[in-house]
């Protein structure tokens, strides 16, 4: 198990470095940084000064390692648009996005696992069809539409939750439901398919032959194996989650990373965009690593790999 984890860790490190090169190249490819930093109407002299101050006249490789060193210490440079420290900017918002993402994922799993299991046990029946309809709806419904509908009902009419802002946990409920429902269908489908497969396996038949109660057969013997691909999907779905959080944070004016990413794209604020891309990619790498480890625990056969 330890060797397996070390191997995955090494692989994750290589991917992370590759990502950093791409993120670095993104900023260089966006145009002349010194010109952008100097702002509009700057003289060639002031641009040259900035170029020297920021070390932009050095060879690219040297610049890359200098930048990597800065990033490693949490220094992501200056925002073109906000004219402040990128690290500070992101740090203030990352927590909100993490809460939103975590809550959405929890809602998606809490919906999709029981529903997927139910649909698999009664596959082909009315229950299965109802569950599939419910999850298809989550996919067909644009998240801005569901978000607005939830605001209409729960914020404006019932006044249970605020419509916008970032003041407390109540602000996260509606966005998390919106985002959670949005990412539920792929999980539901995977749990359902995995459970249908698992329930038809020989080892589930063995468990039934042992006279174990149905509950134990389903939740111990079948679900454990059906969850292996689901864990992998969590990592993959992070992309969908982040994409969705751009929309959802904008609707609910939730002050998070998704909203910041949206702003940095529209203002061509490349240092911010670079930092967001880098962080999201790193989060992705870490999540993949975690899912590999969880899977190795769920499925002992993987540990040998």
């Amino acid at each position: 198990m330890l060797i397996y984890i070390l191997k995955r860790l090494g692989l994750a490190l290589i991917v992370a470095l590759t990502v950093s090169v791409i993120a670095f190249a993104l900023l260089r490819a966006s145009g002349d940084i010194a010109t952008a930093l100097a702002g509009e109407g700057a003289t060639p002299e002031s641009i040259a000064v900035i170029r020297q101050t920021y070390g932009l006249d050095r060879p690219v490789v040297v610049q890359y390692f200098a930048w990597l060193w800065d990033v490693a210490r949490g220094d992501f440079g200056q925002s073109f648009f906000f004219r402040t420290d990128v690290a500070g900017l992101i740090f203030g918002k990352i927590g909100n996005t993490l809460i939103l993402g975590g809550a959405s994922l929890a809602i998606a799993l809490a919906l999709s696992i029981p529903l997927g299991v139910l649909a698999a046990i009664y596959s082909g029946s009315m229950i299965d069809r109802a569950v599939t309809m419910f999850s298809l709806l989550g996919q067909a419904l644009p998240s801005f539409f569901l978000g607005l509908a939830l605001i209409m009902i729960f914020a404006i009419r019932l006044r249970w939750f605020p419509a916008s802002g970032t003041d407390g946990w109540r602000n996260f409920v509606l966005p998390a439901v919106t985002l959670g429902y949005y990412i539920t269908p792929p999980f539901m489908r995977l749990v359902r398919a995995g459970m249908i497969d698992a329930l038809n396996t020989d080892y589930v038949r063995t468990a039934r032959a042992k006279g174990l109660p149905a509950r134990r057969v389903v939740f111990k013997h079948a679900l454990r194996n059906a969850l292996v691909p689901v864990v992998g999907l969590v990592a993959v779905q992070l992309g969908l989650l982040m994409g969705g959080s751009v929309v959802v944070e904008s609707i609910f004016a939730l002050d998070g990373l998704g909203y910041l990413a949206y702003q940095s794209i529209s203002y061509r604020d490349f240092p911010v965009l670079q930092a967001v891309v880098l962080l999201l990619s790193l989060a992705y790498v870490v999540l993949t690593l975690l899912s590999d480890i969880i899977n190795a625990w769920l499925d002992p056969r993987l540990r040998a790999a």
Binding site: Y203, T206, R224, N225, R301
Partner: peptide
């Protein structure tokens, strides 16, 4: 080969 649960 398949009658035992691989996870336990």
């Amino acid at each position: 080969m398949t009658a035992l649960n691989p996870a336990f």
